[in-house]
């Protein structure tokens, strides 16, 4: 059984059905990427998994526990942390306070040292108001704050958004190292190619449905996927790498 199991998830926003029967799974210590165009429902998917939105139908199971419809403040206690789109930093509070709030669900700040070791740039800015950080530093703070909860599964919503290419690479490197610590990652990205480069498996979400799934390598070389979501391929697709 996987760490996270999602079955036939339907989510409505007013009259619109944003997710229409999404099923997916994330194993322990796996990086899974969900790619797809703008408006496909990627953010809605993560917000539903994190308990911000309630699904109309379907089932969410995490580590064998039924999580469907549980509010966000309970989901994070169960070990699922979402780093939201736009990062959700508390810009009017210090870096330290942001990190402390990240650890709230555990009532223990024992993750602080390990987190600061991984993001040394934050250590010297602990007493800085978070709103004064650069975009890249804010992204690091958002990741660090997510890790303060010591999650078993980290949900990342568009971590590359608004970052310069060099910072995007740094962010993806950080994601890779997070997995090495035994944390599973479910990553939602418009930068599909780069996301698939670090992912083990991937799903393609389109208009609320999963339209393709498979090992990240295969998806990255699938011509239809390339044409639709990845832009120009960096290298020519290998023969037999995907469907014709």
């Amino acid at each position: 059984m996987s760490l996270l199991d999602v079955g036939d998830l339907w989510v409505r926003h007013g009259q619109i059905e944003v997710l229409r029967g999404v099923s997916l799974a994330v194993g322990g210590e796996e990086i899974v990427a969900v790619i797809g165009p703008n408006g496909a429902g990627k953010t809605t998917l993560l917000r539903t998994l994190a308990g911000v939105l309630r699904p109309a139908r379907g089932r969410i199971t995490f580590a064998g526990r039924e999580m469907t419809g549980r509010p966000s403040w309970e989901v994070v206690r169960a070990g699922v942390a979402l780093v939201p789109e736009g990062r959700g930093i508390f810009a009017d509070q210090t870096v330290r306070d942001n990190l402390m709030l990240g650890a709230l669900s555990r009532r223990s700040f024992d993750a602080l040292d390990a987190v600061l070791e991984r993001f040394p740039a934050l250590r010297v800015r602990l007493d800085t108001v978070a709103g004064a950080l650069s975009g890249g530093q804010q992204q690091m703070l958002a990741l660090a704050r997510g890790l303060m909860a010591r999650p078993r599964l980290l949900l990342l919503d568009e971590p590359s958004l608004g970052l310069a290419p060099k910072l995007v690479r740094e962010t993806f490197d950080a994601v890779r190292r997070i997995r090495e610590q035994g944390v599973a990652v479910l990553l939602v990205e418009q930068m599909g190619l780069q996301a698939l480069e670090i992912a083990d498996r991937g799903y393609v979400l389109e208009r609320g449905r999963i339209v393709a799934e498979g090992p990240a390598r295969d998806l990255a070389s699938d011509r239809r996927v390339i044409a639709a979501y990845l832009g120009a391929p960096r290298s020519r697709p290998r023969d037999g790498g995907g469907s014709p």
């Binding site: 911000v52 508390f90 709230l104 704050r145």
Partner: peptide, 24 residues
């Protein structure tokens, strides 16, 4: 106080505050 900072977080961004584990 830490509890006050939690309320401040709710005031700033309730959704993000909920994600931290704050009972909104």
């Amino acid at each position: 106080t830490f509890y006050g900072k939690q309320l401040k977080a709710v005031a700033y961004n309730p959704e993000a505050a909920g994600l931290m584990g704050i009972h909104i």
